[in-house]
């Protein structure tokens, strides 16, 4: 089911700022395991599972993906664009894209032939402003279909690699939306006393905006932030997390120490695999928004290891998604049966 959800949701375009229009696919999966659903005004999807006590636990994983936005339709029918969220221009070269205009327009992003690229140009990093989307249309026709402000994404179908390893665009952070789905499914079996808010947040990639407004709206007692982290490849530093070895538990100033410790204990008790990372200051996740919302929210941060972040071949191990989902469900169940005040007091 997790793979089906992931492939389904990653085949859709939900670029930051367009969650309202395109996120309804989520309800299809979450409505089986949750009681009600609402949105904040920026486009976050909040699925609520009623509890029996007055505690609120918010899970946050962002639904938006990075993308491109058209800045100008050029005289000869090419499209200039900028990025929505952080993109390395090199990752765009030779890609097929879909531009979501009045109708979907396909295009490619090319690069000057090597024959006419000077030594100097070769040694300089590519810039977004040097790249164009080529649709093949004449300007007059293109202008009728595409306007400034329309978004585009790389056109790529999710891929099954070996075993449980899969590759797609937008696993950042839909891998973690899938974690929430797994948690919801598990908690249906395990039961919970707190009310659980599964929040697919909007506009994380442009500055944690949806989680700012959604966490204001939910006003939870605890935040569990789920995002992807860097996965090991030959060119990454030794401390990088490995695919298939479970969620990465973050330690750092943004995270609540006692809650984090509790999660680690639960993983050990129930034999869930896990890894650790230290994040001294900024986490670059929705934690930034949640921790300091309203009166402050104690948070933990769990990451799914992912290779090639912010490209169209983001690669994860589905086993990590399932294990993390189940571990979080067990964690919530254990929290509900402990003295929360005790855990949260300093």
């Amino acid at each position: 089911m997790i793979k089906e959800f992931l492939f389904d949701v990653c085949s859709n375009q939900i670029v930051s700022g367009f969650e309202h229009a395109n996120g309804s696919i989520l309800t299809k999966y979450f409505e089986h395991y949750t009681d009600s659903f609402e949105r904040d005004k920026l486009g976050s999807y909040i699925f609520k599972s009623e509890g029996t006590n007055d505690k609120k636990i918010m899970l946050a994983a962002h639904i938006d993906e990075i993308g491109l936005m058209v800045t100008k339709v050029l005289d000869v029918g090419f499209l200039s664009f900028t990025s929505v969220g952080g993109i390395n221009p090199a990752s765009l070269v030779s890609q097929e894209v879909t531009v979501y205009g009045k109708e979907n327009v396909f295009g490619v992003i090319g690069i000057k032939p090597p024959h006419v690229t000077t030594e100097d140009e070769r040694n300089k990093p590519l810039k977004l402003k040097d790249l164009y989307i080529d649709t093949g249309y004449a300007k007059e026709k293109l202008e009728k279909m595409v306007r400034v402000g329309d978004v585009a994404t790389i056109k790529r179908k999710p891929l099954q690699l070996q075993g449980t390893v899969v590759s797609a665009k937008a696993f950042d952070d839909r891998a973690c939306v899938a974690v929430m789905l797994e948690t919801a499914k598990e908690l249906k079996k395990l039961s919970h006393k707190s009310s659980i808010y599964y929040t697919a947040t909007a506009q994380e990639e442009t500055g944690y905006r949806g989680s700012t407004t959604a966490s204001y709206m939910v006003n939870p007692d605890i935040g569990i932030i789920l995002d992807v982290g860097f996965g090991m490849t030959p060119d990454m530093p030794a401390e990088t997390a490995h695919l298939g070895k479970g969620p990465v538990v973050a330690y750092g100033g943004r995270l609540n120490q006692k809650l984090t410790k509790k999660f680690v204990e639960v993983c050990k008790t129930y034999n869930f695999p896990m890894q650790y990372e230290a994040i001294p200051s900024r986490t670059g996740t929705d934690t930034e928004a949640l921790q300091v919302n309203r009166e402050g929210i104690p948070c933990i941060l769990l990451s799914i290891p992912l290779r090639y972040m912010h490209t169209s071949v983001e690669t994860i191990d589905i086993a990590d998604v399932e294990n993390t989902g189940r571990a979080v469900a067990r964690f919530i169940n254990e929290l509900d049966n402990s003295d929360l005040e005790e855990i949260l007091c300093f």
Partner: peptide, 18 residues
């Protein structure tokens, strides 16, 4: 589409529930 800068609408749209 402006590739730099921001306006008053930046903080306002993130106010409260959005």
């Amino acid at each position: 589409v402006l590739e730099f800068g921001g306006t008053d609408a930046g903080p306002i749209h993130m106010t409260r529930e959005g």
